[in-house]
Write a protein that binds this DNA or RNA. Structure first.
Length: 356
DNA sequence: CAATCGTGGGT
DNA sequence: TACCCAAGATT
């Protein structure tokens, strides 16, 4: 099949099989002239970076209900946005989300730029996201290359070079497939195909609209493409979290620095995380006791976090961190590893018989 | 270019 | 259990 025929077959498949998502305008409505809101496209694309559709749905709904426009988001307080993002991971995305919203308001009159090149200059918008927004929201025939597209074209053209070295070659193939009409639907079709048919482990080649053109399928190597470089083993780091709760419900927390792991998020005071950490000092005077440990795995290391808990006096002085009143703090505002530490500590403190 | 940066679900 | 993976960006 020629590239144009592949693209046409893919779009026919998409017209009948497009997944329904809150941020998406389906192929039928799209061809009758309806376009998705660029704000929703941008927000969903950032949330979907290295993140599953299932995990994103509720976050997208909560963000758009609370901040319906990019202007609303730009005017939000940093802590409110970080709290709303808590649990979704890769927190640099949330920091850049705010920077980007504010740049759109201050530098672009509150409207998103309409070309991939201009979008690319915004914080947190890389090659993929710029192309996706330009194609989906503005009909620019930009080349959209995410993990799904990489997998689909690696198989279609039997590219055996391992990633990430294969990226330029895969991008060239993806560019050749991108049509001048319906580029947004094409991009979403490639991703839907990768997510539902051309899957990593057991691709459903029997129902694939491109099966007759697939060189990897013909060679019997589809399931092991794309090849990837082997991954390094994860070391184990250890650390301590001091979960200090006051009788009135206030929690002794600290705001983590913007740079680095969990940057910009709230967390429990504690020492460094390393393979051989020093014993950290408690953040406030109190009857601290070990109540358990959290085992949590990050992208590049395992963490064993010892949880120390104490019910602190009403007049306790915080040496590290700040008491956040019950009214303005929920465990759901914490990154997952910190929420796990809270849950263990609260269970232990409640077991003492006092109230929460 | 290689390292950094989260989390939950599937196998 | 341990590993893989998911609509990547930044430095």
């Amino acid at each position: 099949m020629r590239d144009e025929e592949l693209s046409a077959a893919l779009l026919r498949w998409y017209d009948a099989n497009a997944r329904v998502m809150p941020w998406r305008v389906g192929p039928e409505a799209r061809r009758s002239g309806q376009r998705p809101d660029p704000y929703g496209v941008w927000l969903s694309e950032v949330m979907l970076q290295q993140t599953t559709v299932a995990a994103v749905r509720d976050y997208f709904r909560r963000f758009t209900e609370r901040w319906p426009t990019v202007g609303d988001l730009a005017a939000a307080e940093d802590g409110q946005v970080m709290a709303e993002w808590a649990g979704l991971g890769y927190y640099a995305r949330a920091r850049n989300l705010l920077k980007c919203a504010r740049a759109v308001v201050s530098d672009h009159g509150g409207r998103f730029p309409e070309t991939a090149a201009a979008l690319r200059a915004l914080p947190g918008v890389g090659p993929y996201t710029a192309a996706a927004i330009a194609a989906i929201a503005f009909d620019e025939p930009a080349t959209v290359v995410d993990g799904n597209v990489e997998r689909v074209v690696a198989r279609l053209f039997a590219v055996e070079t391992p990633l990430p070295a294969a990226k330029p070659e895969l991008t060239a193939h993806a560019a050749a497939l991108t049509p001048r009409t319906r580029p947004g639907d094409h991009a979403q079709a490639m991703m839907d195909l990768g997510a539902t048919i051309c899957t990593p482990r057991n691709p459903a080649c029997g129902i694939c609209p491109l099966v007759t053109a697939c060189r990897a399928r013909a060679a019997g190597i589809a399931a092991r493409l794309p090849a990837k470089a082997p991954k390094p083993v994860k070391p184990t780091r250890r650390g301590t979290a001091f979960v200090g709760l006051r009788g009135d419900g206030a929690a002794l927390l600290e705001r983590r620095p913007d740079r680095g792991l969990l940057g910009g998020m709230l967390g429990w005071p504690g020492g460094e995380w390393s393979e051989a950490p020093l014993d950290p000092a408690p953040p406030a005077p109190g009857n601290w006791r070990r109540v358990g440990e959290v085992r949590h795995t990050f992208t590049h290391f395992h963490l064993v976090l010892e949880v120390q808990a104490a019910r602190l006096a009403p007049d306790a002085a915080a040496g590290t961190g700040t008491f956040v009143p019950r009214d303005s703090f929920s465990p759901a505002d914490l990154p997952t590893v910190m929420r796990k530490a809270h849950d263990i500590a609260r269970g232990a403190l409640e077991g003492d018989g006092a109230d929460g």
